Amino acid sequence: MIRHTVLFRFRPEVDWSDARARAAEAATAGHPDHIEEILGWEFGRNMTERPVAYDFALIGTFADRGAVDRYLVHPDHVRGVELWKEIATWVVADFAVA
């Protein structure tokens, strides 16, 4: 199993009142409905005000590296990436679950 973890940080001019942020969140929420490789999917808005905090996080569970690779090029995921690119930067970590 692989956990795909992503932390998003809004660009300075963006917050949750921005319709683009809500559209990106909705696209992320819908990925499991369209991408069969996703075995588990958790996501949510940050709840803290710490300066080091990111604004949004997701954790996806996949069977193996091949499933992650297929997810990354899936049209629904690519559409979500385009939405996030407009409003945020992000960091990613994929790790094997022991």
Rank of each mutant, 00 (worst) to 15 (best):
A57F: 14
A67V: 12
A63D: 07
W16H: 08
A67K: 13
F95V: 03
D94A: 04
Y54F: 15
V73W: 14
R65I: 10
A21E: 00
H74I: 11
R70N: 08
T28S: 04
D15L: 05
L83C: 11
E86F: 10
F10V: 00
R9M: 05
R3N: 10
T61M: 01
F10M: 00
H31L: 12
F56I: 02
V73Q: 14
M1N: 10
P32R: 08
I87S: 02
L72R: 15
V97S: 11
G80F: 13
H31K: 04
F10N: 00
F62S: 03
A88H: 12
G66W: 05
A93T: 12
V73F: 13
K85S: 13
A98I: 07
I2S: 03
G30E: 13
H74G: 06
D76M: 12
V52P: 01
E36H: 06
R79L: 14
K85F: 14
A93F: 15
S17C: 04
H74E: 09
A27P: 02
D33F: 07
L83R: 15
G40P: 02
L72S: 14
V68M: 08
H4F: 11
F62L: 08
G30M: 08
D94P: 11
L83S: 11
H34V: 01
A24F: 05
A96K: 12
V14H: 09
A19I: 04
A26V: 06
G60E: 01
G80T: 13
Y54C: 02
G44C: 05
L83Q: 15
F10E: 01
T48K: 06
F56N: 01
V92S: 08
V6H: 01
T89D: 15
M47K: 07
A63T: 13
A26R: 09
F10P: 00
R79S: 12
T28D: 00
T5D: 00
A53T: 04
D33I: 03
D18M: 03
W41T: 00
R3I: 02
P75T: 07
V78N: 12
L7I: 09
H77E: 08
E37M: 03
A63S: 10
P51L: 02
H77T: 10
F62Y: 12
D18I: 02
T61C: 01
I59Q: 10
F56R: 01
V73C: 11
G30D: 09
V78A: 15
V97G: 07
I38V: 07
R20T: 01
T89K: 12
H34I: 00
A23F: 05
D18C: 02
D69L: 09
R50K: 13
A26F: 09
V91M: 12
G40E: 03
P75S: 10
W90T: 06
V81A: 12
R9E: 07
V14Q: 04
L83F: 14
R45Y: 06
V14N: 05
A19E: 10
I35G: 01
V91H: 13
S17A: 08
A19C: 06
W90N: 13
